[in-house]
């Protein structure tokens, strides 16, 4: 397999806090690779180091075949969209795009085919100042600017944070199509539900990678059973379930509660009879497959110590 990014033991501290603790992973050519974790997990620091904007304390990486110290080579090969969409608010949509094209020594026309699909949505507003665009539009323009020099590896730092579910879904569809063209994409996000959009994901928390695998494999590996329950009185249900001593954890998931338990203890009948006993109505109890969020929380709790 052709590896586009290979990181080995990247470590970075800010004063006393360790932002990244010996992070290692590799990303294959044409892969859509996600870093999933909350704010402060170290995602941005990692992307900054891999794009040579920041130096690591120790460790190294190969980005498109070049070591981190080979800054110039890496910089001309990667596209990077920092956390805050970095656009010039006083320049128009077109001027922003042209500027980034020029700075990377190319023109908008030369590489128009790459951004065409995204840019057509922006075209009606091309003379509008970037500062006056909506969140979703800014996000698209920032993506165009990061793509205009035809990078071989694309780094997107939290491109969907603070963006509504509709725009988020659209954005991921765009990434899926970009991937089709052979581009290697690294994305970070705090939204667990976006993991399923990636080929592989790294779950990251407090500077450490908890797990790396395709999202389907991560959920398959989940060592416990997850039972989803609901009833007409969720508040009471929650209190009742918390009394179940063989439950490893109880968390709310939308309209359901997810109860995790060891496989040998798991039994939907036991829970059902408990609920009946407590007088719950309209109950639903079912064994379900774990989601990424179940896995993440499980890994978080097991990595505490």
């Amino acid at each position: 397999m052709n590896e586009r990014v290979i990181a080995t033991n990247i470590t970075k501290s800010f004063r006393s806090t360790k932002a990244l603790d010996a992070v290692s992973f590799s990303v294959n050519e044409g892969e859509l690779f996600g870093f999933i974790g909350p704010d402060g997990a170290g995602k941005s620091t990692l992307f900054r180091i891999l794009t040579t904007v920041m130096n690591a304390d120790s460790g190294d990486a190969l980005v498109d075949g070049f070591h981190l110290k080979d800054e110039i080579a890496i910089r001309s090969r990667v596209g990077y969209m920092p956390g805050k969409f970095s656009l010039y608010p006083d320049l128009s949509v077109q001027e922003n795009l042209e500027f980034f094209a020029k700075v990377f020594g190319t023109t908008v026309n030369e590489n128009y085919s790459i951004i065409k699909e995204i840019y057509v949505q922006l075209e009606p507003f091309k003379d509008r100042r970037a500062g006056k665009l909506s969140g979703g539009m800014k996000q698209k323009l920032a993506l165009c600017c990061a793509l205009i020099h035809k990078p071989r590896v694309l780094f997107l730092d939290e491109p969907t944070t603070g963006v509504d579910p509709v725009s988020r879904r659209e954005f991921w569809e765009m990434l899926g199509r970009l991937k089709q063209s052979g581009l290697t994409i690294l994305v970070s996000t705090p939204y667990m539900d976006e993991a399923s959009r990636c080929d592989r994901v790294a779950l990251i928390q407090k500077g450490k990678i908890l797990d790396i695998d395709p999202p389907g494999v991560i959920t398959k590996k989940f060592p416990l059973h997850v039972i989803a329950v609901k009833s007409d009185n969720m508040q009471k249900l929650r209190k009742d379930i918390l009394k179940v001593e063989y439950a490893e954890s109880v968390y709310g998931f939308g309209e359901y509660l997810h109860i995790t338990m060891k496989k040998e203890n798991s039994s939907t009948e036991k829970i059902e009879s408990l609920l009946k006993q407590q007088g719950h109505q309209h109950t639903e109890v079912k064994l379900i497959e774990a989601g990424i969020e179940d896995c993440f929380m499980h890994l978080m709790e097991h990595n505490k110590n």
Binding site: R48, T51, T52, V53, I72, R75, S76, V78, G79, Y80, M81, P82, G83, K84, F85, S86, L87, Y88, P89, F100, V103, F104, G105, C145, A146
Partner: peptide, 11 residues
């Protein structure tokens, strides 16, 4: 605005 960070990655 974060644009400096984008410029840093440019050549």
């Amino acid at each position: 605005t974060g644009t400096l960070e984008a410029l840093m990655v440019s050549p």
